[in-house]
Amino acid sequence: MKTLENILNVHSIESFGTHDGPGIRMVIFLQGCKLKCQYCHNPDTIDTHGGKEYHIEDLVQRALKMKSYFGEKGGVTVSGGEPLLQAHNLIPFFKRLKEEGIHTNIDTNGRMLNHPTIELLDNYADLVMLDIKHMTEEGFQRITGKRNKETTFNFAKHREASGKKMWLRYVLIPEITNTPELLHQLGQYFKDYQTIEQIELQPYHKLGIHKWDALGWEYELKDARENTTEELENASKILSNYFKKVKIN
């Protein structure tokens, strides 16, 4: 029976993802996000009214067909958009995945920490990949269009207190997020966290500009450049002083 509680609003599904968590993964991109990040390469996931409805059990069965490919490390990652906008419905979905012995992961901007989110995080999410947008309030507002970067850091504090695994993600934009000062600030803030297994650095690219154009939206980072190899290596070296593992995607 189809009810609002057992439906997820999905933008797209990737069957054999290798960049959204450990191992081979089924990656479900949910529709809808409250942020409008300047570098978003999937701006078509932002509108909460788009997407396609999927019954939770249909998604579980789809994951079960892939289970043999997951191996010991793989599983299901829910990304977006912002998946925690649908946290209430993710609870029964992740609960079913856990019943089937499938590893669960959430890729989130950490802007929500309400009761459904806390239940999901504490009981059903094996891993959280947390996107750190910027280390200053001014920079956060410029990139996301929203205020209050502290919500993401409060989310990280909750995850750390739970003792459950977390990865960080950070987009490197020359002169905007990729400066030595900001990288040291990032490292200093998280250096004592015990739950962080690694930080993933996402080199800035412009692969999503055509999607912004198709939506009739202005892409504000047209003048931003991509990182040089040396800049990526220097960022990795700085953060290696603070994190167990630094990975450049």
Rank of each mutant, 00 (worst) to 15 (best):
I7R: 11
S15F: 11
S15Y: 11
H19E: 05
H19W: 04
D20T: 10
D20W: 10
V27N: 00
I28D: 00
L30H: 03
C33P: 03
Y39D: 01
C40M: 10
T45Y: 10
I46V: 14
T48K: 15
G50P: 09
G51K: 08
E53R: 09
E57K: 15
D58N: 14
V60S: 08
Q61C: 01
R62I: 11
A63Q: 04
A63T: 03
K65L: 10
M66K: 11
M66F: 12
K67N: 06
Y69W: 12
K73T: 14
G74L: 04
V78N: 02
E82Y: 01
L85R: 09
Q86L: 07
A87L: 07
L97A: 05
E100H: 15
H103E: 06
T104Y: 04
T104P: 04
N109S: 14
N109W: 02
N109L: 04
N109Q: 08
L113I: 07
T117I: 14
L120N: 07
N123D: 09
V128C: 01
I132M: 03
G139D: 01
F140C: 01
K146A: 02
E150K: 08
T151C: 02
T151P: 00
N154H: 14
F155R: 01
A156F: 03
K157H: 13
R159P: 00
G163W: 13
K165V: 06
M166L: 08
L172G: 08
L172W: 10
I173A: 01
I173P: 00
E175S: 14
T177I: 02
H184D: 01
G187D: 03
Q188G: 13
D192T: 11
Q198K: 15
E200P: 00
P203F: 05
P203E: 03
G208Q: 12
D213Y: 11
A214W: 08
L215Y: 10
L215E: 09
G216C: 09
E220V: 15
L221I: 08
R225M: 13
T229A: 12
E230G: 02
L232F: 12
N234R: 15
N234T: 13
N234Y: 13
S236I: 07
S236Y: 08
N241V: 01
N241R: 09
Y242K: 07
I248F: 09
